[in-house]
Amino acid sequence: MQDFTFAFLNLEIVREAWPILWSGFLYTVTLSLITVPLGLVGGVALALLATSGPWAVRLAAACWTDLFRAIPPLVLLVFLYAGLPFAGFDISAWGAVAIGFFLNTGAYYGEVLRAGIESVPRGQMEAARSTGLSRGQALGYVVLPQAVRNVLPDLISNTLEVVKLTSIASVVALPELLFQARQAQSVTYNATPIVAAAVAYFLLLWPLVRLISRLENKAMAGR
């Protein structure tokens, strides 16, 4: 038991590694604050193309969505970071993460939002247009707000996944929480920093998990 505490719950090590862990935590939060809006922008664009473009555009949007939902995000990231330099595109780890998340989470948000837009009755758009609103205004003021409300649980749940996914940035050596924890672990030969990182993720994301669970139960009961 004492060995276990020493190896996994070692407060001495936590104190020692605190500055580096804290910086990793802040980095993870920053990374999330950048990747979530990036994915949302991509998602809204995809959803609009998939619901209101001409048929060729709609088909292309659907293929694009399925393509990037089928490729594991880590594969995409490795491809961008380790593969592209061979073709002379030397993108930084930051660039690879930004593009990878835009493509991957954009596809997921796009799929959720598409379902949301399709759940809004056609009459809403027609009613809005009949009062003289432009197509863009009707989308922005009438259709999208309802679409977002209809799929809010899925949107929040997707956001949780994006934040969790930022941990793969450790693979391309961005100093986020998991990366810093691994650094601290290899320096101290002690697993405590990784446990501390896990606790930090849990504390950060638990409220979101509770919220989603409540919303999902309500949605399922409403079927």
């Binding site: 969790k164 450790s170 998991l178 950060l204 979101l208």
Partner: peptide, 13 residues
């Protein structure tokens, strides 16, 4: 809740 909140890579590591 725990395994929904933790990133899979963190658990693997």
């Amino acid at each position: 809740d725990l395994f929904r909140a933790l990133p899979p890579l963190v658990i693997i590591v």
